[in-house]
Simulated scan of single mutants.
Amino acid sequence: MERLQYIADLFLCCKKVQQNPWTAFAFVFEFSEGHVANSGFLYNGEAVRPASASIEEEPLLLRNTLREFREEVYEQCDWRFIKLLFQMESETGRFKIDFEFEDKSRWEIHPGNMMEMREELRPHFD
């Protein structure tokens, strides 16, 4: 749990998260051979803003931390996730992490599905 809280704290250090108002956010990280990409959304009530997650002062810190976490998950369950979804709400500070191990198209954000994905990825903490 300590590792997960550290990851949550890193997301809170991201430039877009710090510089924009939000009530919740969601970021998808995609891992492939030697490459990590991310995209997501900041939600502020009904307003939604596309965003990416990066810490300005240490641009590789979040990515490298998630790579290490991916290896820890692999050591425990013998599967490497190809995507990680991180969601957080501001009011309570609650967060969720989900993984995809096989389906490369899951949580894929592109211009053709932007409106659909922003709602699909919107965090719901029930």
Rank of each mutant, 00 (worst) to 15 (best):
E119G: 02
E100P: 04
A8P: 00
A53R: 07
Q18D: 03
H110D: 14
E116Y: 11
F27L: 02
L85T: 06
M114Q: 14
G45N: 02
L62K: 11
E100V: 14
N64M: 09
E30Y: 08
E119H: 11
F125S: 04
F41R: 10
L60K: 15
A8V: 01
G40D: 10
A26L: 01
P123F: 12
G34V: 11
H124S: 13
A47E: 11
F11G: 02
F25A: 07
F29R: 09
W79T: 12
Q18I: 07
P50N: 12
F86T: 06
E30F: 04
A51H: 07
N20M: 00
S54L: 13
R106L: 14
I109T: 04
W107K: 01
E56I: 05
E46F: 08
L10M: 14
I109G: 06
F95Y: 15
Q76D: 10
F125V: 08
S54P: 00
P123N: 11
Q18S: 04
A24D: 09
D9N: 14
Y74K: 15
A47W: 01
E89N: 12
F125I: 06
C14D: 10
H110T: 03
D103Y: 06
G93N: 06
Q76V: 03
Q87K: 13
E120T: 12
L61E: 14
